[in-house]
Design a protein around this nucleic acid. Sequence first.
DNA 1: CAACATCACTTGCTTAGTCAAGTGAAATGA
DNA 2: TCATTTCACTTGACTAAGCAAGTGATGTTG
Lengths: 147, 147
Amino acid sequence: MRKHTLGSLTWIRMMRFTNQSNQLSNEFLKRFDLTTAQFDVLIQIKTYAPLTQSQLAEKVTVTQGGMSRMLTRLEKEGLIERKQNWKTKTISLTAKGEQMIDTATPSQLQFQSSFFEEVFTTEEMKTLNTLMSKLEKHSREKKLPPV
Amino acid sequence: MRKHTLGSLTWIRMMRFTNQSNQLSNEFLKRFDLTTAQFDVLIQIKTYAPLTQSQLAEKVTVTQGGMSRMLTRLEKEGLIERKQNWKTKTISLTAKGEQMIDTATPSQLQFQSSFFEEVFTTEEMKTLNTLMSKLEKHSREKKLPPV
DNA sequence: CAACATCACTTGCTTAGTCAAGTGAAATGA
DNA sequence: TCATTTCACTTGACTAAGCAAGTGATGTTG
């Protein structure tokens, strides 16, 4: 065995890192009574509302089913509203949701940044950001190789 | 709003990328009847067996509870064995599990690498790998800021 | 206009994972 | 020696998400 290439090593490192930082972020957001996934969805709504469920799902790379459930939870918590609009449901924040995301946002963005700022120079940060842009874009277009 | 720093932008890009590539990887591994998480666990066992559940959990950054469930599933599929050993359970691959991971490994490592190789130069790959090493290491030691 | 197709969303079943309380064997100590 | 602690693991209740089948409005067409 032991056929680890540079690419597969990097991949596994990135997986471990995102996993780990996601857990820490969840722990951090507990003080605002939110999870990382919820924060992510709320901030998208805040930025792009009004929008439909499918648009939202597409933005956070989740299936429609997943989004449906997530929004059910958020609605139960009273953070968002769904209004039937012809065949579409339009999503928007409630006052409570708005207040929640506004309170959490500065610290959360700061916390996310801290992962990088604590180890990288500005130069390195810029490099990483450029590389990640390319990667993310590419992965959105990537197709499976034939069997 | 709009307080996105370079760090928080990079963070979100990395999350989207890993999420996306994880989904593609799951789809890819279907041809071997495995999921990404299962592949990850099996390859760790293959590399480090014999080892205990807690050691394994630590390696793949998952809680003990999560590992317990994962191994229950893998055992039900006949891919691994758990032997009670004093108070510890020792994990090892069955013949079936061994064969499974050996078949899947080359293509899967190749697939993981392809995310990077399709967009990066060798130089960029090396840079990214170095940056990710630092990040991963740091995140494993990171503590939450005080409230 | 009735039959069918399409679209946006929901839901059952499954994997994966968290946390915290529970269990049972082994070690320690009064 | 019996009581208590510790350790490794399990389990119940939950969040999160995928897939595929189902639902119920809206549009299209013979």
